[in-house]
Computed example of a mutant assay.
Amino acid sequence: MNYKYHMPTKVFSGKNCIVANSDVFKTFGSKAMLVTGRSSAKKNGSQHDVITALEQQGIDYVVFDKVMANPTIECAYEGAEFAKANQVYFIVAIGGGSPMDAAKAMALLAKQDIQPEDLFNGQYAEDVLPIIAVPTTAGTGSEVTQYSILTNNLLETKTSIAADILFPKVAFVDAKYMSGLPVTTTINTAVDALSHSVEGMLSIRSSLVSDALAKESIRYFVKAAPAMCDAVGSGDVSLLDETVRQDLMQCAMLAGMVIAQTGTTAVHAMGYSLTYFKDIDHGRANGLLLAEYMAVVQESEPQLVAEILAALGMSELSEFKALLSKLLGEVEVLTKDDVVKFSAKAVAAPAIKGNCKVKPTEDEVNAMFMQAFNLAF
């Protein structure tokens, strides 16, 4: 059995783990750059805890809080220039996938002179600013991956920088920062994590280790699913208590460890157009397509889908579709022209061309979109 496993990030998990382990920060230098969005890191207390830890260790810091949802290439370059101008030694990424992904690109660009046209070519030197990641949502798992996903307006999609030098050195995983996170955001990010684990098992790079992590991640999702369904039905965010938040944080981190080994598949390749052109949240986009791709896989690899369903505690794909439908609700409107355009983009993506155990045809991708969005064939 041939496989490799590499995840060099040191993880600290638990309540108040940042301040309790503040000495970790001093190993990276005397000045940090905090990378966040406009307000969420301030509101949920994560930025306060990071600053407290830095001040305990006598470390200076500056704040770059201009990261938007689905960060752009331009944002990454702006942050890199800010890092260079302030002569920082390391970066602390605080937030969901957007700040973490943007911070990784900034860490690379602050140390290497890379032109935009070469940003995604995979040819990088080893020099990069160290990254410490503080996730405040349970979705992307970016705190334990080597990926930086940026909005690429030239190609009208999202494009990935993938390099082992982008693995965060340290991740602090504390579910308390998710307290009060809106129901919809909680659901969308959790479904993103679930998609990572399922897609990891559907990847040609899956292994004994990645599948074990994926199944454990899926089980954490299943534990949290009843509370998420109740919260969707009532709109009551208090139903997503500390225990649920902790389960979802573990789900997301484990799922990140999966895709760090396997990459993603057709679901992500298809979902990027939904986000770019229709402004559908990334995790939601994946969730709308996930069961449809599993149905395609089931045609030729039924045992593979059965293995995933077993981890979910289910025996039929229809049960999984029903759960996703309950969590995600009414679907958005797509036209047949949208489907043709999005399908053509998806089949050209590396995730479909080279990473699927079951590689869908363009006709099958068309059909998946049509089925997911209730369009007549």
Rank of each mutant, 00 (worst) to 15 (best):
F90K: 00
P130G: 07
F320A: 08
K357D: 03
A162L: 03
A351P: 00
N286Q: 06
V305F: 04
G79V: 09
S30D: 03
P182S: 05
L154P: 01
E316R: 11
G287W: 04
I51V: 11
R245W: 03
L155R: 08
T145F: 11
K111M: 09
E216N: 13
E156D: 13
T72M: 06
D192G: 01
D23V: 11
D118N: 15
Q56R: 12
L312I: 04
S234Y: 15
E81D: 08
H268L: 02
K321N: 13
I94F: 02
V144Q: 03
E143R: 01
A53N: 01
A224L: 08
L119N: 00
Q115G: 06
F342R: 06
S300G: 01
G95N: 04
A260E: 00
L155S: 03
S179A: 14
V209T: 03
A291R: 06
N21H: 08
E81N: 12
S40L: 05
P116R: 00
K223S: 14
E78D: 14
M370Y: 14
T27S: 10
A266L: 08
Y220I: 04
L194Y: 02
L309G: 02
L213R: 04
T72N: 10
V183G: 14
A322N: 15
E156W: 10
A69Q: 12
I18Y: 15
T189P: 04
G180P: 13
S13Q: 12
P99V: 10
D241P: 11
I280L: 07
M33P: 01
D49E: 14
T145E: 02
V209G: 00
S148A: 13
Y293P: 00
D23C: 13
D118V: 04
N366M: 13
G14P: 15
K31V: 09
M100N: 15
G200A: 09
G58Q: 09
F377V: 10
S210W: 08
V67Q: 10
S22Q: 11
D127T: 10
K278A: 04
M68R: 12
V92K: 00
F167N: 02
E199L: 11
A85E: 09
T185N: 06
A311Y: 15
I114R: 00
A32V: 08
S13A: 15
A295P: 00
V340F: 05
F221H: 03
K341M: 15
R205Y: 12
Y3I: 03
G256V: 07
